[in-house]
Every structure is written in C-alpha cells, then in structure tokens.
C-alpha cells in the first residue's frame, strides 16, 4: 500500500467518522443556541432511533421504512421531553437545565434497559448494506454503510441549510439563537421554533443512531453516550451554538481521531485517543471558548 492509497483510505475513514459526529453535534448546537441547554439526553435519541428501527424491523416492516419510522419515533421522543422536562425549566440557571438533561439521560437509558435489557442486540441489515467496495486491488476499501453515512449526512445538512435560510420557522430559529428578546418582539413564535428545533435535532440524532448501529452491528441502551461526548467535543471545538461550527468541529474531530489511530503503535497513543480528545476539548474551552468559528458571547437582556 503506497502513501497515496493509505491517505485515501484514511480520508474515507475520517469522513465517515466525521459525518456521524457532525450529525449529532449539529443538534446539540441548535438546542444550545436557543436555550443555553447543554443537552445530555441528546445522545439517547440515537438509542431511541436505533431501537425504534429494530422494533419496526422485528415487526416485519421493510428496512427503509423501519429506519424512517425509527427516526420519527426519536423526533416524537424529542418533542415529549421538550414539553414535559425542558419547558418547565426554560430560563432557569444553566446548571438546572444541565442537571435536568442528565436526569433525562438516566431515565431514558434505564427505560432502554427495562424494555430491551442491557445486553447488546443484533441489528439486522439488508444484504445490500453489507456490501463493501474495493479499489486499487483491495488496498482501499469501504462499505456501503460508509457511503450511506456520508451521503445521508450530506443530505441532512443540506436540508438543514436550506431550512434555516428559506422557511419562516428556520429564519426564526436563527433569529431566536441570536437575540431571543428581539425574536419575541418581532412576533416569532418561539415555542414553535423550539419544538421544531427539537424535532430536527432528535431526528438527526435518530438517523445517526441507525447509522452507528449499522456500523457496529448491534444496539444497546448506552450506545448514545460515547457519541454524545464526542459530539460535545465537536460542537465546542467548532463553536458551541453555531451550526457551521458543529459541522466543521465534527469533521475535524473525525479526522483527528483517525489520525491518532493511525499513529505508530509503538508510541502507544492509540488507546489514549479519548483522553487526547478531551484534553483538546479542555484546551479549547480555556483558550478559544468561541471555537474554530469564533462564536460570540450571547446577547444578554
């Protein structure tokens, strides 16, 4: 394998990994920009989406439709938690909202254990998704899941970009993130905006959950936690509260993780990937809290 082929293979890995991070991080950032809520329960929407898909498949629903329904279920759960848990603490101190989301994670994951037990379950895939492709006589390879991850992420992000520029609710979402008081004054229906934001964020996370489960081959109740932590890192190093920031952060983090993994093994750093990534997060918080895109401090009333 020559250097060019090696690099190409690593880029495929990085893009596939980064897509997933971006997809989850975008939702975190949207919610944070609107509510200043550091939403720990966001990762669990991945679990909800993946289990939703699994249950539908077991009920005999064809794969693609099952995925769609799984995503719809995570959107619904997003709506429900916003209504019953986050709306009552809206405007409360940051820590109160953060703790509410921690409690929600705990509830959702234990609900997952109660319904599906804590042992991983097989996540069945149709044959066409298990296909892999080889280039350069097999020295470069990728799976259709890699392709699909990138393709669907791209579609989702393009949709989001279109949505926040061309629809009234999307404009309202950006406006409310910039200046909540002014949003009320121009008559933006902030409740609607927040509910739609939860629908988008949760369905993106649901999609990411299905893709994650497809790559791992299994689903389990805690599956959302590690990706959530990574998405936090992505969103913060990109610029917490910024949609482009979350996307950039996602791909940067994906590239970084692949890079760490491809370091010579005698350095012994590969296993410390998470420690390195979180050290980077702390460094960003300290030295560049606005992230790569440089988010400004929020407007205070």
């Amino acid at each position: 394998m020559n250097l060019l082929e090696y690099t190409f293979q690593q880029i495929i890995n990085a893009v596939s990994q980064g897509s997933m991070f971006a997809l989850v991080a975008v939702g975190l950032s949207i919610i944070f920009s609107l509510l200043r809520l550091t939403n720990f329960a966001h990762g669990d929407m991945m679990m909800v989406g993946a289990f939703g898909t699994l249950v539908m498949q077991l009920a005999g629903v064809p794969f693609l439709l099952a995925v769609l329904l799984g995503i719809v279920i995570s959107a619904l759960v997003g709506i429900i938690i916003e209504r019953i848990a986050y709306r009552p603490v809206r405007g409360a101190p940051d820590v109160t909202m953060l703790l509410t989301s921690v409690a929600l994670t705990y509830i959702l994951e234990n609900l997952g254990i109660l319904l599906f037990t804590s042992s991983p379950r097989n996540f069945p895939l149709p044959d066409w998704l298990n296909a892999s492709f080889n280039l350069a006589d097999g020295r470069i390879s990728f799976t259709s899941i890699n392709l699909l991850t990138f393709g669907l992420t791209l579609l989702a992000l393009l949709f989001l970009a279109w949505f926040v520029r061309n629809t009234q609710v999307g404009l309202g979402m950006r406006a409310a993130a910039e200046d909540l008081t002014a949003s009320y004054l121009v008559g933006i229906n902030v409740n609607t905006v927040i509910v739609v934001a939860f629908v988008m964020a949760s369905s993106f996370a649901g999609l990411a959950g299905v893709l994650w489960a497809a790559q791992a081959g299994v689903v389990e109740p805690h599956m959302g936690f590690t990706p959530l932590l990574k998405a936090f890192v992505a969103a913060i190093i990109g610029g917490f509260g910024s949609i482009p920031g979350a996307i950039i952060g996602g791909f940067v983090l994906g590239a970084l993780e692949v890079l760490i993994q491809s370091l010579p093994s005698e350095w012994g750093l590969g296993a410390y990937r998470d420690a390195i990534v979180f050290t980077l997060l702390i460094a960003f918080l300290l030295f560049r809290p606005g992230g790569i895109v440089g988010v400004k401090q929020e407007v205070k009333l």
Binding site: A85, V89, L99, T100, A103, L104, I107, N110
Partner: peptide
C-alpha cells in the same frame, strides 16, 4: 430516581 431528580429541578 431520575423522575424525582427532574421533579426537584422543576
């Protein structure tokens, strides 16, 4: 326990 936690928060 999680529910109690949320009720306290609210």
């Amino acid at each position: 326990l999680g529910l109690i936690f949320i009720l306290v928060m609210v």
